[in-house]
Amino acid sequence: MHLFLQQVFSGLASGAIYASLALALVMIYRATDLVNFAQGEMAMFSTYIAWMLVNAAVPFWAAFALTLVISFIGGMIIERVVIRPVENAPVLAAVVVTIGLLLIFNALAGWLFTYTLQEFPSPFPDRPLFGALLTSRDLGVIAVTLVMLALLFVFFRFTTIGLAMRAAAQNPASARLCGIRVGRMLTIGWGLAAAIGATAGIMVAPILFLDPNMMGGVLLYAFTGALLGGITSPVGAVIGGLIVGVTENLVGTYLIASQLKLTVALILIVIVLVFRPNGLFGTAIVRRV
């Protein structure tokens, strides 16, 4: 039982990271109807920026904040320059472009920072808590995610710009008639998603170590979480991400060797999707024609 609870809690910690990235995916999907396959690599690149700052003796939380700002701006630039031209192109073109971005960021990181694993500092001490049920590091990761979610909730719920972003995602034509500049909302959305992804990257890097391929598996789990929750639902994405994190840990502990974890995840995805094609909280996908 103790082992079980331990695995659940550490699963929640990694689930929180998947949930963040899943949320970033869902935000962009809702706004532009496309899946950003580069989300994970963008997060990885942001994490390298944080790593450089920390190495330059910037205090951790200052480096964290600065990285979020840089990622936000970077995300906006990417939307403007790379995504805008294919916004109305067929789905396949958009998929190919975001995969292209994925490759470019991966290669850029490999070229700039090499493929060797780097240690990334954790802002939280690694002490066991509550009779070793969870570590203070896990708790820290969960807390950061919760704070971020709360901030996002307040932003989208209570600020005018957050409301305008929701309106632009839901009904762009009507949003324009209200005087909302939909293009600008999309740009901000990409910026926000990049910043959320950066948070996920910085939280996961102390666990996985930093290298250009670090986010490959994370993206897949986040994607699974997003689909599990229903790719149109932000709340679903968070819950889906947590479920994936816990399941991954339990499967790894009790069922099979960890090399097959991804394969099991794949099978789980297919099973879930066959029975609930729109995920747990999502609405039916309308095909873009």
């Binding site: 409301l163 305008a164 929701r166 309106a167 009904n171 009507s174 949003a175 008639l177 209200c178």
Partner: peptide, 23 residues
């Protein structure tokens, strides 16, 4: 007010009105 009304069906009545005052 376009054909088919163009309300934001996923938002609350009050949020719709707030959006009207956006500009």
């Amino acid at each position: 007010v376009p054909e088919g009304r163009g309300t934001f069906v996923g938002l609350t009545v009050e949020e719709n009105l707030r959006l009207g005052a956006y500009s």
